[in-house]
Each structure stands twice: as C-alpha cells, then as structure tokens.
Design a protein around this nucleic acid. Structure first.
Lengths: 116, 116
DNA sequence: TTATCATATGAATACAGGTTCATATAAAAA
DNA sequence: TTTTTATATGAACCTGTATTCATATGATAA
C-alpha cells in the first residue's frame, strides 16, 4: 500500500543520508567555516572585501570598527581560510580566499532579497 | 606615480564597499542564517535533509541525537527559514526550504574537498 | 473519554567565543 | 639606533547559546 511505500522510501532516504554524511571532522570543518561567516562584524568585513583587496586600515574604516577587534576578526577569517593576505611594506592586504566564498556570499545575498 | 594610483584605487574600493554594504539589518539576517548552519549538530540535520524530506524520528536517528535536542535544533533552522515542515498525521516532515540553501551546502562541501 | 505516540517548549546549567585593553612585533623613517 | 606607523596577540570579562530534563501540546487509536 501507498503508506508503506512512503515509509520505506523515508527509511531508505534516512539510510542514504547516514551513508553520505561526511565524517565528523568534515562536518566540523564545514560548521567552523559557516561560523566564521555568522558574526555581523566578520560578515561585514567579508562584504567589504568582496569588492577587492583592502588593507587593514581601510577595512577598519569600512566596517566602522576598532583596530584590535578587526584584527581578531581577520584572524578568525584567515584561520578558516575564508580570506588570505599578503604584506606590502607596512601594510597587510587582505582579500577573499577563493570563489567558493564569493558564491556563498552571492547566494546568501540573493536569499536575503527574496524574503519580502 | 604607481603607488599613488594604487592608494587611490584602494580608497575608491573602500568607498564602494561602504556604499554597497547591505543595511545593518540585512547583514544581521545574513549572519543569523550562517549561524544557523554553524553548529555541527544543525549542519548534520541539514546534510541529512539534503537527500529529501524526513520526519523528526528519522532525523534523530540520522544524526544520532536525542529527541529534545533535535527538536530545538529544528526550531532554530525553521526560524531562520532554512528548513520548512508540514504535518502528516502524527508525524512532522521536514525538508530544505529552498535552492539557495542547497547551493550553499554544495559549495561548502566542494570547498571542503579542495582542502587537502 | 482515556491512553499512547510524535513532536514541541521552558527553564536552568554550562560552556564557547566576541570585544576590549594593554602590549608586542614588524617595517620604515628619522 | 630610536621613533613612528601598521598590524597582531594575550588575557579577562561578559554575553550568547547549545544541551538537558521535565513537561506540554497535538494527533490518532482504543
């Protein structure tokens, strides 16, 4: 009967879900990255960097934060490989690490816009 | 001179970043959604649901959690419009809310794979 | 109605993590 | 070398939030 088939379908889905689930470590890494994007302060930094490479001073201005806080936030983003940096003289220039991040930002923005 | 041009370029980027920055509220909503994905427990649920609709019982099995915890986690995901649900008799069936979420999950998984 | 199954919620505890302040490093200028 | 500019780091405080336990609600079956 139909109900039984559905029940069976769900059972199988559940088992497949279990089978295709990344390792605990993998899930942990993914979650850590999402967490890096989950704080308005850090997300703002990233949105600022979406336009191109910026030095810490300009980032600090763009997000209207203070130097120390921004530096800590940059570290978190760096540690999670969401941004990268290079030194040029006294300045350190930050930029978005790769296209995956850009896609996620773009997708999140789109999602935002279909809310209302 | 070159250095000056570069400096100017960065200034302009910074100003553009400032101009294109979503409202504080918008950034807040985006961040809240990322936060919903930022806990291994919740992310596992979502990865389980990526394969299709599941009831709470099956989700609980798939993530090896306990009923109450899973229910709280589902609420957080629901509140952030990351999943949706419908009732069918005694059971409540959950599924991923929309394609944006699927894209983000897929992108995050890919990002994971190019790590090593 | 009462009993049972499936899910949701509230309150309390416990821990993670963001911000601040003070200070350290690194590079260039004096 | 000493000073100044640009960025990074450590520790402490404090807020936010995930989990647990007990219980409530909602739906069906008896």
């Amino acid at each position: 009967m139909a109900v039984c088939d559905e029940e069976q379908l769900h059972e199988e889905r559940m088992k497949r879900a279990l089978a295709e689930m990344p390792s605990d470590e993998g899930v942990g890494v993914m979650a850590a990255r999402f967490k890096a994007l989950s704080e308005p302060s850090r997300l703002k930094i990233l949105l600022a960097l979406a336009g191109g490479e910026l030095c810490v001073e300009h980032i600090t201005e763009a997000v209207a934060g203070n130097q120390s806080a921004v530096s800590h936030q940059l570290r978190t983003l760096r540690d999670n490989r969401i941004i990268k940096c290079r030194r040029e003289g006294k300045k350190v220039l930050y930029s978005v690490a790769d296209d995956h991040i850009m896609i996620m930002l773009k997708t999140a923005k789109e999602h935002l816009h279909c809310d209302e």
